[in-house]
């Protein structure tokens, strides 16, 4: 059975969308990194959330998460890599798992930075976003892991365990990184090669690599869902939170300024309710279709 609604992202927008869709009795799956990795969690004090000044971001998020959990939201820790439209549902790939939902709400936050030079050109020719997907193809070969997400060291260890020769690139050597993995301090990055990737260039110095794994916090919405319309770098939505794709809604920072908690929670509410309505309409039209077929 597919979920009624899959929410991508577990920040304030996603959690607000989840509780509002649950209030309409929809089954809801929230896929996200650990919510404690949200930038809000590190905010010492939030003073502009109505009626609740002086709270820490952590206290707020803890409360939001508990609230969503108590409503019966299903949580899955992981990174959504792709969303594929099927006939009347969307299929989401989450690491090595797959889930299906009738509507999707994107609450992915602000996309972290631009693509690196060479990234788009070498996608599928050495550039990968998923160590568990593509790691096996690089066994016994040199690879570079660009660690931009908290779970990146784990993924690097996984690659090393497969037999890849891993170089890890990040601001500082992370704890828990396999001692056998060499580390290079991150700088200006460029992916270079000819037919396929041959190296990761860091501040002008090449680290030989046949694979470059770019492990970011989240996959940008347009890479998740080809065909999604953007506006000024953000996901384009109408006042109902509808994107350019049917059954796909968006809320929070990924839809644009201001990047504020109250706006995210409000948009999450709108998207959660509208997505629930969309699912109801879908069910109605399916019922009508099946009655027609029965005649």
């Amino acid at each position: 059975m597919p979920y009624d609604i899959a929410v991508v992202g577990g920040g304030p927008a996603g959690l607000s969308a989840a509780i509002n869709a649950r209030a309409r009795n929809k089954s809801v799956l929230v896929v996200s990194n650990d919510y404690r990795e949200s930038p809000l969690y590190r905010a010492k004090q939030v003073d502009n959330y109505l009626g609740m000044p002086g709270q820490s971001g952590a206290a707020l998020l803890d409360a939001f998460y508990r609230h969503a959990e108590e409503t019966g939201t299903v949580f899955r820790t992981g990174r959504v890599l792709n969303i594929l439209p099927l006939d009347s549902t969307y299929c989401l790939s989450i690491g090595t798992e797959v889930e299906e939902a009738r509507a999707v709400i994107l609450c992915t936050g602000v996309s972290q930075g631009k693509k690196f030079p060479g990234e788009a050109a070498f996608l599928g020719r050495g550039v990968s976003y998923c160590a568990t997907c593509d790691g096996m193809l690089y066994r016994s070969r040199p690879v570079a892991v660009v660690g931009l997400a908290p779970d990146a060291p784990e993924e690097a260890n996984f690659l090393q365990g497969l037999g890849c020769r891993v170089t890890y690139v990040s601001g500082r050597r992370p704890e828990g990184l396999d001692p056998a993995i060499s580390w290079v301090k991150a700088g200006r990055l460029e992916i270079v090669g000819e037919e396929a990737v041959t190296a990761l260039r860091v501040n002008g110095t090449d680290t030989p690599a046949e694979g470059v794994f770019l492990l970011r916090h989240a996959v940008p919405p347009t890479d998740l869902l080809p065909g999604l319309t953007l506006e000024g770098g953000y996901v384009a939505v109408d006042r109902e939170g509808r994107t350019s794709l049917p059954g796909v809604f968006a809320a929070g920072d990924c839809t644009g300024l201001p990047l504020q908690l109250a706006k995210a929670a409000g948009e999450g509410l709108v998207a959660g309710q509208r997505a629930a309505e969309y699912v109801d309409q879908l069910s109605d039209s399916e019922k009508i279709d099946s009655i027609k077929k029965g005649e």
């Binding site: 299929c91 998923c130 568990t132 593509d134």
Partner: peptide, 14 residues
């Protein structure tokens, strides 16, 4: 494809 690849599983019915 491969058995351990989530996106591959997703593509299988297609």
């Amino acid at each position: 494809w491969a058995t351990w690849c989530g996106p591959c599983k997703m593509l299988a019915p297609v």
